[in-house]
Amino acid sequence: MKSLYKNLFSSLLKLRMTENEIAKKYSEQEMRCPVHLSIGQEAAAVGVCSNLELQDQVYSTHRCHSHYLAKGGDLRSMISELYGKRSGCCGGRGGSMHLMDPSVGMMLSLPIVASIIPIAVGAALSLKLKKKKNVISVFFGDAAVEEGVFHESANFASLNKLPIVFVCENNKYSCFTKINERQPSEDITRLAKCHNISNLRMNGNNLINVYEKSKMIIQQIKKKPEPFFLQLDTYRHVEHCGPNSDDNLNYRGKSELNNWLKDDPLENFIKFLKGENEYDQKIVNEINDKIMIEINSAFKFAKNDKFPNPASIKKFVYA
């Protein structure tokens, strides 16, 4: 297996296995914060983040597990945060919607859907002012473009030619409300066009394609700074918030559901590897075992970790 494929596969599998484990353990009611799982949407995070250097930064939303891990965020700190423990990446002050690990450039995640976007644009402005050749990636969902601050941010980034990729993961639903009840078209690149921002819409469940396209985009931005808008159509496999399926509520059409569940990023990538004659079961097993050990160790660590000291409640209100 080529090292590129091995890295992409490892990263993708780690995201999937980690979130499966969260889903499995969630009913123990020890992770007492909302979780917005990325299962089904992981190719976006892995495809884009695999092209980023350490100094390139990532900003994300409430659905941030995948971006945090794909950018290299520490697994133990993430799981500890979900358990509300002291060693959590936010010291138990944020929970699953605020994951961050600035040491690897995973800077900030925020739950109000477009709230992170202007902050990422500010980070891109800081690169311009420092004359650095890095790039900012900001991930958000299809509903984020419905909030005004997306447009304020896109306009500002375009006007100032800032080095930023707006990665819009279109999973079609804002909680239970479908995009066609919220927007006149599912082609969200129309909004990039009106801000004079180069753009591309593609299927977001094909990892190698997302990887290749975002590689070109990121290289281009590093050569000539200006924003890019990348729409990745995808689908979440479980409920908006929580570990279970909620398709018993029938808000997603049967045929749509079946088609999209079949278009699974992990299965797609395995199919791709097999087609390239690059699939090696032994290596896959090794990767799988290694990740499982890491995950088990992270959960064990989080469970044994101490809660934050209640006396520290007012710490970090002011610097």
Partner: peptide
Amino acid sequence: RVIESPISENGITGVSIGLSINGF
């Protein structure tokens, strides 16, 4: 360094936060 801004109050506040967590 002295930036005349578009009429985007929430946007430029976010931009300011983004600058400030990056050393400005």
